[in-house]
Design a protein around this nucleic acid. Sequence first.
DNA 1: TAATCGATCTTTTTT
DNA 2: AGATCGATTA
Length: 811
Amino acid sequence: MVDTPAPPIPPYLAMLNPEQREAVLHTGKSGDAVHPLLILAGAGSGKTRVITTKIAWLIRERGVDPRSILAVTFTNKAAREMADRARLIDERAGDAMLRTFHSFGAWFLRRNGSLIGLNNAFVIYDDDDVAALLATLLEDTPKAEVKQIAHNISRAKDFFLGPESPELDLIDHRKQFRQIYARYEERLAQIGNVDFGDLIKKPVEILQGQPDVARRFRDRFRVIMVDEYQDANIAQFELLKELCGPDTYVCVVGDDDQSIYRFRGAEVRNILEFPHRFPGTDIIRLERNYRSTEPILRAASSVVARNESRLGKELRSERGPGKTPVLAFLPNQDEEAGFCAKLIENSVKGGAGSGKGGVSGKPDAGAAGKDKAAEQPKAGSPAAAFSDWAILYRTNAQSLGFETEFLRRGIPYRVVGSLKFYEREEIKDALALLSFLVNPRDEIAFRRVVNKPTRGVGPATVDRIVDASTGSAASLGGDLGAAAKELLPELSAKARAGTEAFLKVIEDGRTLLADQDEAKSKEVKKQARKSKDREELRAGEGLSVLVVHLVKDSGIADYHQTNDEISGNQRLNNLQELANAASLYAPNIDGLLEFLEHIELDRSLEDDTNKDKTKDNAVTLITFHNTKGLEFRRVIMTGIEQGIFPREDKQDEELEEERRLFYVGATRAMDELYLTSCAMRRIFGRTMPEEPSLFLREIDKSVLRIIGDAPYGFGSGTGGGHGGYGIPAGIRPQHRSDSRPPADCTGLGGSPSHWQRGDRLYHDDHGYGAVIEVRDSEEGPVVRVQFETGKELRFLSLHQGSRFTKIGRDS
DNA sequence: TAATCGATCTTTTTT
DNA sequence: AGATCGATTA
């Protein structure tokens, strides 16, 4: 070893623990080899701190040019946070490229897409657009099937498989799939847009096919870091590989126990096999957890430890002992919501200091702070803020019950993730107008808005225009606007007028954008301001001028405001919100492209409804998946029942993934963890008996307190002695009376179809009635029923699952 | 050709 | 319970 005098350790390094510091200081250089680095970072081990510190350190102490650093994440939030925190240590980190995989891919394609014939003014299709495009290719195919195919195509791209790849059969073995995929690719190329998977797959293809481009990029990026590497799919792995030259320094960070995106192509093997794929890899483990207390960590670990395929890692709590996690057995989901509500109310009422809020729920906040241990809750539980709490559930649908209950009790809450802002009809309409404006070949956008509001341009006319654009007249190059214009003379008066009107809207939009000299834009603005009537859209700065103009001019705004009496104004607000978001972008084509790309890739823009509730002090309602990277002082994991979590069809590898999901959820909790499991639950509108989740049996019982009526092998959770559990009497779960369901829940018992005249029945919607005629048809027996209400209805099939119950027969 | 009604089927998780 | 599909109706 060469002796160099130890330089003083700068404070930003001094606060790291030895493993963290080792990870930061690792450069991979030994001799002329460059060793890649794999950081196995357990939950709450200060992973983000390590990455950001490492970036800053490389710039500061190693003289690495910030522009030569590329750091990729999976979510925009993570990317933003990383940028913010790195910049905090060293300003220059702002010049490093910190992006999500997809946004990097889009950035790459805007510059290099032309090499494979992609116009740089492409728009990114989301899943719905993909399905819509497929639907035009597959007439008369049920929506569900189209979606399935869309999903499979997306999976194929995740695995870097094209329509010709032999392995395609592993994704979808149906013979036509290959052909449909090929047709889809062809049509998408004609349109000139890309889908999500293309943002990864196409850059890899370019890098593979064009050595000079690859060289250029390898030259530019000397350091590449990947966060949440366990979530990378095969295509992303390929991209990483292509970007890495012999002396690129690669550092990936991840946790195999937190790999939860297999369903969308994430490949755990990426991280498990990283050392083989990148020979010479050094591995550093971060196993000190600064977030959760000991019992919480033990409970979480005891479950995930049952998994077979994991690298193995033992998390140790730096926070020491704490409250034992509580498992509550409850009668049904209403009680579950009530239980959570009372738990929260009691904790908040607890005393002064409540209502400050905004403390937790911050991603990975100060994970390495040793001082944190001092804040440990005392026995008597200090008062909590609403924002200390998070309710976790497996599926978004489960949020409803909590929302209802919290609304009723006035508990502030905020729903994360299901924000569907960009899925709203009015927003999609507006975006379609904008998309069509930049890309007149966009069939999907065109179809969406050409006859909205109704302009007399029916499907037949639309098809003609689309055919004309792609057909013989190659001169049109797929331009739908041009094709429409050319067809005008041949259309009926009504269709012609409508088409012309639509074309004018788009034309005016383009003009507005083209001569966006200050005078013009101000004029529009002034005019918009003048009409100060209530609920009027107002144009502000930048691109919002165009958005507002287009939305009004096209009639989309009016259409939604008047068509929907109840929420018309809400819809208008949403459009306004979209316009506001657009104000940050330049009023020209490039700005518009940027805006659309941003929207497609970062859907975190909040809904207007949610804004009201986004007081900084609110309970968080969130799916397990969405909690990754977050932490909360108190967490309630709900619906921990067999069939719900894990889902019933999960086995083997997929079961292991569910287990990891459980682990992710539990390790979000800092101070207190609760789990709830119901005996009955409404599913598809019917109440079904439930069983406790397998995972509940797997938890180390020495770190679990069971309350409520525990079924089967869960020991004596019943009865009186809750005394020492620290659960106030008022919120003790009630015992369920009897969990057996009624004998026959499925409606019609017995033979399905043997109805005859005179049968009496009960229909869920129409009440009592009697069969007055039975007739056979091709589809099966047709039954005519006379209801007490006087209604007379005919029903095609009265087999299982229908809403009838036979209750007897007239003589 | 759009709107309405009833039957049937559906549910993960998301960049 | 909610979305979606298909058929019947105005």
